[in-house]
Write a protein that binds this DNA or RNA. Structure first.
Lengths: 193, 193
DNA sequence: ACTGTATGCCAACAAGCGTTGACATCGACA
DNA sequence: TGTCGATGTCAACGCTTGTTGGCATACAGT
């Protein structure tokens, strides 16, 4: 009986509007340039409401950056197609939800955002990689390498806007990058002949 | 006869001190959080001097983010070792000069910094890749993919601080990542059997 | 020695920021 | 109907920011 019945409150719509506006602004401008006033204006409410519902700017960001990678169960994927499945999944996840972009932009300057990013890619991705049974001694490193290529892809395509990466069709990117992830995940540890 | 003799001016030391402090601050805090006041304090001068010598904050950043990748002449490298040479070079360049870190942090929120980043990786890296003679139709894409892996490596290691990437020895990173760059540079275009 | 210019510091400005508290209004429940 | 908490608006606060102009000092050329 810990929770009281979570009856729908009238302010839920406002809360959601704030969160949506916050994600948009954080994704477009980063943590510092995304001002509470601008977010409130986008959500058509008063800045003080943001404070009432989320405490302060850090609290708002923490709520807006809540994120689940929704990684598929890798144990069910044919071992040879792990890379392909992962790239495609990340591209989809990125285009459909700007939370990751917000996190990516903010992580450059905000320690809390960087911490969140570390948690997501160490815990969620690390766990998924561990679950299909590589050598436990190397899973962390393998997951880190996968993260480096995935985040580099996102950074060049969505943040910096490097032309050849922006123009590329998703299918092309999958074809190029999948073998990289595949090797990071299932390839032999280099230097061990 | 265009330039007058560039006699050493007494203020050159101050200019240099400002630039050094600016690079440090921009690298550590990003564009927005690196304040002119803090930079001036680090350089032991008055904030107004920064304005006199660099016009405004954007001008200061533009000067501080001047950067040459100093890519080696790839034409002289054995084709099979291109990836290895490139990763090693970038790791060295990164550890020894915080300008790239400053650029990386700032590019997330500052349009000018993103533009600079695009220029560096499109022009300098693009030119180097083009010079060892791949199919000209694919060089831009190949260079973009290399940039994505290199920047992802830097982002996870120096900005986000993902533990497995921070703990790794440079040699290990080279061993893991070199084959990736090698394939992006010299591998066949995927999907063409 | 005198003058003009380069170099530097100080004080202040206007604008924008996160944040706060007081007050109005609505809706449910007795 | 009267009461009380939830919801929302308004105005203001203290602070930091980039930027500016005025004034002192040091130096170089005559």
């Amino acid at each position: 009986m810990t929770d009281a019945a979570p009856r729908a409150r009238r302010s839920d719509a406002t809360r959601a509007a704030i969160l949506r506006a916050a994600r948009e602004r954080f994704a477009a401008d980063g943590y510092d340039r995304a001002t509470i006033r601008a977010i409130a204006a986008d959500a058509n409410i008063d800045p003080s409401m943001v404070m009432r519902y989320y405490g302060n700017k850090e609290g708002l960001f923490a709520a807006a950056a809540e994120f689940d990678l929704r990684l598929p169960e890798l144990a069910g994927v044919p071992t040879g197609r792990l890379g392909e499945v992962l790239v495609r999944h990340f591209l989809d996840r990125w285009e459909g939800d700007e939370t990751l972009a917000a996190l990516l932009r903010a992580a450059s300057t905000n320690p809390g955002a960087a911490e969140r990013m570390r948690a997501i890619f160490a815990d969620q991705l690390g766990a998924a990689v561990a679950r299909f049974g590589t050598d436990p001694a190397t899973t962390a490193r393998r997951a880190g390498l996968v993260a480096s290529q995935i985040l580099g892809l996102a950074f060049t395509r969505y943040i910096v806007g490097l032309p050849p990466m922006v123009d590329a069709e998703p299918a092309e990117l999958v074809a190029w990058v999948a073998p990289t992830l595949q090797r990071y995940l299932t390839g032999p540890v280099p230097g061990t002949p």
